[in-house]
Simulated assay, not measured.
Amino acid sequence: MIHIRFIAADQSVQDIQAEPGQSLMKAAVDANVRGIEADCGGTLTCATCHVMVNAPWIDQLPPPVADERDMLDFAACPAQADSRLSCQIVLTPELDGLVVRLPAKQH
């Protein structure tokens, strides 16, 4: 199992456990993480699963593809250098302990 910590804009924390191989978005939705809307279900056609990935984790992820970078332009909160779409982050054992921050809004 992979441990993930979500930090909401109000600084509340939700810790979850997830299976390797699933997306961060799917793990968040399954655990009812408040702040991950995932309107498109992970098809990379919305930006409602926007997260900011804390260091050192951001360096362990593959770079975002062009479609992800483009979709982040439509995020409700402005994208930051560490912004990613959680539907595009595949959980691996190396990401155990991952910490992500949630934007103030997804819509």
Rank of each mutant, 00 (worst) to 15 (best):
R5D: 10
A28G: 08
R34M: 14
T92P: 02
K105D: 14
R84L: 05
L91S: 02
F6I: 03
Q14E: 12
A75K: 04
C46M: 01
D70A: 14
H107A: 10
V65C: 10
E37N: 11
H3N: 15
E94S: 11
I2S: 04
G42L: 00
E94M: 04
G21T: 00
V90I: 15
L95F: 08
F6C: 04
H107W: 11
Q17V: 05
S23I: 09
I16P: 01
L85C: 06
L44P: 01
A47S: 14
V53R: 05
P63T: 14
L61E: 04
P78F: 13
L85E: 02
S83A: 04
A31N: 11
D15E: 15
P93D: 06
V13R: 08
V99P: 11
V29L: 06
L98F: 08
A81T: 12
A8C: 11
H107M: 12
T45C: 12
G97D: 05
C77Y: 10
A104C: 12
I4R: 00
P20D: 09
Q80W: 01
D96Q: 06
A66S: 14
I16A: 05
E37H: 12
A104G: 15
C49G: 04
R34Y: 12
M71P: 02
L98K: 04
M1W: 02
C46F: 00
I7A: 07
K105M: 15
W57I: 12
L85G: 07
M1S: 11
R84F: 06
S12K: 14
H3R: 15
L102D: 00
A76E: 12
A18K: 01
I7C: 11
A79P: 06
E94W: 03
A75L: 06
E94H: 07
H3F: 09
Q14G: 08
M1C: 04
I58F: 06
D59K: 13
H50L: 09
M52T: 11
A79L: 06
S12D: 13
A75S: 14
P56C: 08
L24N: 10
A81Y: 08
C40F: 03
M71W: 07
L98P: 05
E37M: 13
G42P: 00
M1P: 11
E68I: 02
M71F: 05
G41T: 06
Q14P: 07
